[in-house]
Nucleic acid binder design. Structure first.
Lengths: 205, 205
DNA sequence: GTTTGCGGCATACCGCCGGTATGGAGCACA
DNA sequence: TGTGCTCCATACCGGCGGTATGCCGCAAAC
């Protein structure tokens, strides 16, 4: 790692590092205090720079939020892809994906920045676009795989995937806010599984 | 209606009227521009008063939002109760309730204030409490009725109701944002119905 | 009818925060 | 060694949530 990045000049190294520090600081503060209650001065302080640096790298508070959003989503998606593309049949991989996604939703950063504040801060349309490239895209792909494998009967993929995605994130929110997360997690998984099994319908295997 | 309210003094009539005007103005502006982009001066102007009046009736912006929230929810709940307590068996009433709720979710005020910004502005815990007294309470009660009538097999009511509620509101959001709401509405209803039918499971009738 | 109290609201003002304008420091390239 | 451009700091502005203060008029007390 010491001699890496030798391709680019030292100057852009510094710049990248500053930008990353700003994003990290933003993720932390947005997660802890929410978008509205987080001041840009605080974000800059957390990255040990001033607002001038922040406005050099980002056009404004919204753009900073979107950068934080992308950072969280990228990390999460990378992990989920591993789970969903593992060994086993389509059904097993899907169920494994459900478990994996619920786990992801338990992380405070994902829950607050991506699920809760994302649609409000970015606007629902833009949030929807962004989601297509990340975790929702995975849910949709998994559902398509299930249909292609004949595990569940054909249905409007886009709509079903959206509704399922909503059910999943809602479930994860329940778990995170429950007094007994262990128990709540089991119940949520059972509920989602029951829904999927119900869709298995006519001739599953 | 002319001689109504004769019990209370003219002064409190004025006060109530002012308060209602503020809430109405808040509902309109929060719906159109969202919480963050709505200034209290604008709300006051919309009610043809000043910020002094606003702060006399409400402790701050959050309290004003909650008043708007309650106003929207009250109107909606009243309508939904009519639908759910209509004639017919438990299953029919439930399906009718689903259709009714999806319709409710199509109203911009309900969608933006209650579903989208509510959890963010009020905080998820407080939003959850408030919801118990309104539309979520209805979903839960309907689900309980279904179980009691033996239409679907027993399951953890609270969790299932929450997940179902999430699926419903997500579905409504899809419809509202779809290029062809007619078609999207049909698909969402079909999806939710299929989920519920899947739960009907073992031996309903 | 006069006085007194107080609820209902307007006006003026403060501090914080998002955003902008400006300038300086240092690397790259000629 | 100039020259330009990237990267960032400093200083400042305007808007908005929130507060302090005071007036106006109804209503009860006498």
């Amino acid at each position: 790692m010491t001699t890496a990045r030798s391709e680019q000049s030292r100057r852009v190294d510094y710049s990248e590092s500053t930008r990353n520090a700003l994003v990290d600081s933003a993720v932390t503060l947005f997660t802890d205090n929410g978008y509205a209650a987080t001041s840009l001065d605080a974000v800059a302080r957390g990255a040990r720079v001033t607002k001038g640096a922040l406005y050099h790298h980002f056009s404004g508070k919204q753009a900073l939020f979107e950068a934080a959003f992308d950072a969280v989503e990228s990390a999460v998606s990378a992990r989920l892809v591993q789970v969903v593309t593992g060994p086993g049949g389509a059904w097993e991989r899907a169920m494994e994906g459900v478990r994996g996604y619920v786990n992801v939703c338990l992380e405070p950063s994902y829950q607050r920045i991506v699920i809760h504040e994302g649609p409000v801060v970015m606007g629902w349309d833009r949030w929807r676009e962004a989601e297509d490239r990340f975790s929702f895209g995975l849910v949709r792909a998994t559902l398509e795989a299930l249909i292609e494998a004949g595990e569940i009967e054909a249905l409007p993929v886009e709509t079903t995937a959206r509704v399922l995605f909503g059910a999943l994130s809602t479930g994860a929110t329940i778990i995170a806010g429950a007094p007994d997360p262990e128990r709540a997690g089991a119940e949520v998984l059972l509920t989602i599984e029951r829904v999927l099994v119900g869709m298995r319908a006519a001739g599953p295997r």
